[in-house]
Design a protein around this nucleic acid. Structure first.
Lengths: 138, 138
DNA sequence: ATTTGTGCAAATCGTTTGCATCTGA
DNA sequence: TCAGATGCAAACGATTTGCACAAAT
């Protein structure tokens, strides 16, 4: 992530995205605080709070463009919103059902074994493990 | 699943749900064809085709009630719709990204090892493995 | 008779889209 | 210059909700 930060313009160009003011600003917000999970609304509010002027439509566009170019990873755990993870490495998640929060599991922990063969003609795109957790005694 | 079918009224009563005409009809549609994955729209169309008269609101109500009482299991793989699985046993899924279809992996296949401890005070509610697959060469 | 369920239409909410206007290369 | 970006508001699609009416116990 720090790598991405060193030269945001450069990072964006490598992703074949013009380093526009809003993309650079959003990239800075996203990548300057370590690994995190955001959704569109979250990032929108954060931008507003940081005095960064960006429309919600642009937030969505940017989130998807960053995802398509590998800067972000999309995670589906809650059918009502899409989360984006700034950690694009191979890792899995805890999903806190009570607060709708995602927490990274350190890479190297979970091991998925004995996967059956994918259906004929199909190849694996990703293997996602989500451990849903909730307050004990519920 | 067959067990559930033997006496739908009884199954519903055990789930503390009144065996109304629409619930019984939907239960029959859901549980008489082996394991399957449906979403609200899917079931709605299927009901219409089978001449079963049920409103979409009732489809949603019923799907959730069945899920809450353990007759169905909800699966989140696509942030735009919710899938329900008539197989409530312990198993995981292939998700066909091209066709938005779910396929059960036989139980006993995938093994998830070395899970990190859940965050303090939280207990595991479920461990979901989704293997996203797509047409080879893409 | 009372409680619970159903259907309809309107309301929500996250997300997408159309389009006129800007902006970076 | 001009393809690509942005912002706004309207459009969308899945899901939920409010409420009058109907059905189950």
């Amino acid at each position: 992530m720090v790598k991405k930060l060193e030269n945001l313009d450069e990072t964006l160009r490598e992703a074949k995205l013009r380093p526009t003011r809003q993309r650079v600003d959003l990239a800075r917000l996203l990548f300057s605080k370590g690994d995190r999970h955001v959704c569109a609304e979250t990032l929108f509010d954060e931008a507003r709070d940081a005095g960064v002027n960006v429309s919600l439509a642009t937030i969505y566009n940017t989130l998807h463009q960053f995802t398509d170019s590998g800067l972000l990873r999309a995670i589906t755990v809650d059918s009502s919103r899409t989360y984006f993870d700034t950690n694009t490495g191979d890792h899995h998640h805890f999903y806190l059902e009570d607060s709708n929060e995602l927490i990274d599991m350190p890479h190297g922990y979970v091991k998925v074994d004995n996967l059956p063969q994918p259906p004929e003609g199909l190849e694996i795109s990703s293997v996602d493990v989500v451990v849903r957790v909730r307050s004990a005694g519920n």
